[in-house]
Amino acid sequence: MKLQNIILLAVLVVLSGCKKPSEQEEGQTAIKDEIQALENRYAKAVSSKVLDSIMPYYADDAVSYDSEAKPLSGKKSIRASINNKSSAYPESEQMTFTVTEVFPSSDAEQVVEIGHYQVKDSKGIAYGSGNYFALFEKRDGKYVCIRDIQTPDTPRKVAVK
């Protein structure tokens, strides 16, 4: 009888340690997956330099902050900047964006994302990386970026005079 009680107690202890994810955790994981999918499409579009594929990432009234320039307001300014910067990158460049954390509002209408980006050459050798924050807002049932800021891991070197 004592052995049965010990086995039953052991089973109960093991089962009590098996915690199911809460609805909130599951919802946050789904949002993180959705934002990562947006970042993957954005990276593919940036790497292919197809501006029309890049721009759906941004809301019409988005503001983009770059560590090396003044803030860009609106899709038109962001598009011009991306077009200008992408012309300097090699055709074989590949960018990746990795979502590290998401912080959705209580109603999930807005999400703050923290992530890391990396730029690789045609041989897969990383030659640039950095971190970013993005604020997404759900519009017409889809998340769009309304604010973003990025900074490279290695600051641009300034010539000493």
Score class of each variant (00 low, 15 high):
E101S: 11
R79D: 06
S64K: 07
Y58S: 05
K76W: 09
I146D: 03
D121V: 04
F136R: 01
A62P: 04
S16G: 12
L12M: 09
K76L: 14
A10S: 13
I146A: 08
D60Q: 13
G74F: 03
V63F: 08
I31Q: 00
G17Y: 04
R139L: 10
V14C: 08
I82V: 11
I6C: 00
V99K: 02
F97H: 04
Y132Q: 03
R79C: 05
Q28K: 15
P56V: 05
Q36W: 05
K20L: 15
V50S: 11
Q118I: 05
D107K: 02
I146L: 08
R156V: 14
S86V: 08
K85G: 09
I54H: 00
G124Y: 04
M1G: 14
I82G: 01
A59H: 10
A59W: 06
L38T: 01
V99S: 09
K120D: 07
L135H: 06
F136T: 01
V112A: 11
K19N: 10
L9V: 00
D121F: 03
K2R: 11
V13L: 06
E34P: 01
T96K: 07
V160M: 13
T154P: 01
C18K: 03
K49Y: 07
E26I: 15
A159Q: 15
R41W: 04
K138R: 12
L72G: 04
S86W: 11
K138V: 04
A134P: 01
A69D: 13
V111E: 00
G141R: 03
